[in-house]
Simulated assay, not measured.
Amino acid sequence: MAAKDDLGRAGEERAVAYLRGRGYDVLDRNWRCPAGEIDIVAAKAGVLRVIEVKTRTSLRFGHPFEALDDRKVRRLWRLAHAWIDAHPEKAGRYRVRLEAVGIIGPDPRNGMLEHLVDLR
C-alpha cells in the first residue's frame, strides 16, 4: 500500500507542477470532507477547477481515465459543491469545471501526462 501511496503523491506533485506551468492558481490540495477527497482545486480564467489525478505505472489495468466512470464524476461534483460551501470566500466568483490529469509510467516525474480539461 505504501508504494501505491508514494506513486499517487508523486503523480499529484507532477500534476501540480504541470498545472502551475500553465497558469493555474492552486487553491487547495488533498482537501477532505466526510464525502471524500479532492486531489487539487485550482483556478484559471474565471473557472474553479476540481482536478482528479490518476497515476498508473502502466496500461496493464487500463488507462487512468477509465477509472472516471459516471459514479466517480457524480461524486466529484458533490465534492466540488462541498468545497465551495466550505470556502465561499474563494469560490464565489467562479464557474466550476471538473478536470483530470492522468500520468502513466513507472516514474511519475517523467511518465506520459494527459490533461482532460472538461470531465463530464
Rank of each mutant, 00 (worst) to 15 (best):
A15C: 03
R74K: 15
G36Q: 00
R49Y: 09
T55L: 08
Y24W: 06
A42F: 09
I51G: 02
V73E: 05
A82K: 04
R109F: 00
E13Y: 13
L76C: 07
L98F: 01
R9N: 09
N30W: 12
D6G: 12
L119F: 01
E89C: 08
P108R: 05
C33T: 10
D107G: 04
P34W: 05
D70A: 10
G92D: 12
G23I: 00
A82C: 06
G23P: 04
A17N: 13
G21F: 04
G36R: 02
D85Y: 14
L113R: 02
T57H: 03
G11A: 12
N110G: 12
R95T: 11
S58Y: 01
K54W: 04
I103C: 03
V117M: 11
V50S: 03
F65S: 05
D85K: 12
R74C: 05
N30S: 15
V26H: 14
D70L: 07
I104M: 03
D25S: 10
V47R: 00
L116F: 06
L113M: 10
A82Y: 08
I84E: 06
R29D: 11
L119Q: 00
F61S: 05
L59Y: 11
Y18Q: 13
Y24A: 02
G102D: 09
A15H: 02
R120V: 10
R20S: 13
L7I: 10
G21E: 02
E13D: 13
I104P: 10
Y24H: 10
A43N: 03
E12D: 08
A2D: 14
Y94F: 10
W77T: 02
D85H: 07
V73N: 01
V53H: 04
L48R: 03
A10E: 05
T57S: 08
A45T: 12
R95Y: 05
L98A: 00
D118H: 15
D25K: 15
D118V: 01
V101Q: 11
A17Q: 14
L27Y: 06
L119C: 08
A43C: 06
A91L: 13
V26L: 04
A91E: 04
R56K: 13
E99K: 01
D5E: 14
V96I: 07
P106L: 11
R56H: 07
L68D: 02
L76T: 03
L48P: 01
V50I: 14
E99C: 08
W77E: 03
P88V: 02
G21L: 06
Y24T: 07
E12N: 10
K4C: 10
D6V: 13
R109T: 08
R9H: 10
G23N: 08
P34S: 01
V101A: 06
R56L: 00
R14H: 14
E114L: 04
A15V: 04
A91T: 09
N30M: 09
G46R: 09
V53T: 00
V53K: 00
Y94G: 00
F61C: 13
A91R: 09
V101G: 04
F65Y: 08
L116T: 03
W83I: 07
W83D: 09
M112G: 15
A91I: 05
R29P: 05
F61E: 15
L59E: 04
G92T: 13
D25T: 14
A35W: 11
L116H: 05
H87Q: 07
Y18C: 08
